[in-house]
Design a protein around this nucleic acid. Structure first.
Lengths: 237, 237
DNA sequence: CCGTAAGGACGGAAGAGCACACCTTTTCTT
DNA sequence: AAGAAAAGGTGTGCTCTTCCGTCCTTACGG
């Protein structure tokens, strides 16, 4: 009955430095539009306290993001660090990203279906109203994928926030970041977006009814759609 | 429509050292029984290569686990590092563990339901036969919670392995580790274990039929059972 | 015109991790 | 019986990351 030693137990230990993680966190937040263009970040001395890192380390990340054009800094009393008005476009996905696209989809599936199940139990109607509004925003941007995608991300992350679980919010944000890297540069016909957005309505409807199984199932089908699109385009990768 | 800056974006960055993560990985693997008593670990020089850390760092972790009684080391040509025959019992959960029990359950829910959905699509019958055998093992240990729990863990992790996704396997292992810390020291009447094990059968049945929604739903209900037990016992925490 | 709040810059201290060389113990092979 | 081999055990010094503290520069506001 004893299985042999599972390989994954001895998989490489991640060694991401604080600088790298900070850079990644802020960078994806900007790319996802969670930090809006023109928005002001907390002051460095406050932000490094919130992130529980030293100011030097934080500044490494901020400096890198300024140089890459994601942020711009303004000195002086009324200054601060601001998200660029026109952040640079998402980079093309790395070979490593493409190689792991299926794993990324799987991870996203787990997080999002779990979020849907829990949100159905816990979401406040007021929050759901805000998410419904996002469906309307997306409906108005079927021809403008970047704008559509930004509302899309806000919807999914907003649903995660509705669960009240910080872990799930973080996991959802990370999953959305990975997905954005994968899909930012591929064509999205308006018909596809429209049908995807119809699924958003079904998900929110089930969540509002408190029907967790239906919400989970609707989310599952929603994500399978994305997965099939990717499978078609990346078949060789 | 612009939400204010999401709090979770500026949450503390995790700063876990390679030593800490190695210690945790191997320690939980032993506590969960994924590394069986008496089992021999790969040689240090090989293991540090697999974990992508230096031998010094690996030895820090191994030394700590030897001192805590989880491992014992044997010198000489036929030597090695072995899992203790009688590893020390799980520690009582820390206040931090108890405070976050609901978050831990949520995370587990997402991972496990996702695993069930994906396993229904991908699991090989041969693998499912092995998992069915574990249900039989559990049925024979309704009076012996440690033994029951060990087979339980192997079942859940085995289902994750059936998805073929390393991320999910790792996430599932971690979630099971957290759950074990929470539930190791509470009473588990045989009737509760029997009903829990019946749910295992339902899950595996749905997976075998390739009925993903049913598998996901069965898993969801299975986990809600555990959650209700915990909610009753930890209500004040 | 000065205080204050913001970003910007430097320099040293501490610790984690690593590479490498070497030692000790035991067993296997010749 | 001798020596090679394979394993854990030990020590040293270097590099890189991070942190802390201090100071500088800019610019708004009274």
């Amino acid at each position: 009955m004893q299985s042999p030693a599972p390989d994954v137990l001895f998989a490489p230990v991640r060694s991401q430095t604080a600088f790298e993680e900070t850079l990644e966190r802020l960078g994806t937040a900007i790319n996802l539009g969670l930090l809006a263009p023109g928005e002001r970040l907390p002051a460095e001395r406050e932000l490094c306290a919130r992130l529980a890192i030293s100011r030097s380390t934080l500044r490494q990340a901020l400096t890198a993001l300024v140089q890459s054009g994601h942020l711009h800094a303004v000195r002086g009393r009324a200054g601060g660090t601001f998200v660029a008005d026109r952040p640079p476009p998402a980079e093309i996905p790395s070979p490593a990203d493409l190689a792991g696209w299926r794993d990324a989809c799987d991870g996203r599936l787990a997080v999002e279906v779990g979020v849907a199940l829990l949100a159905a139990d816990r979401a406040e109607p007021a929050v759901l109203d805000r998410l419904d509004a996002l469906v309307g925003v997306m409906a108005g941007h079927l021809e403008d994928f970047p704008a559509y995608r930004q509302a899309d991300v806000r919807l999914h992350v907003g649903l995660a926030e509705a669960t009240g679980n910080p872990r799930l919010i973080a996991a959802c944000t990370e999953a959305q970041g990975e997905m954005t890297r994968l899909i930012a540069h591929i064509a999205h016909p308006p018909e596809v977006l429209a049908s995807s957005n119809a699924q958003h309505e079904r998900i929110l409807g089930a969540v509002r009814r408190g029907d967790a199984p239906a919400a989970g199932r609707a989310m599952w089908e929603h994500l399978r759609g994305t997965e099939h699109v990717l499978a078609g385009l990346l078949r060789g990768a």
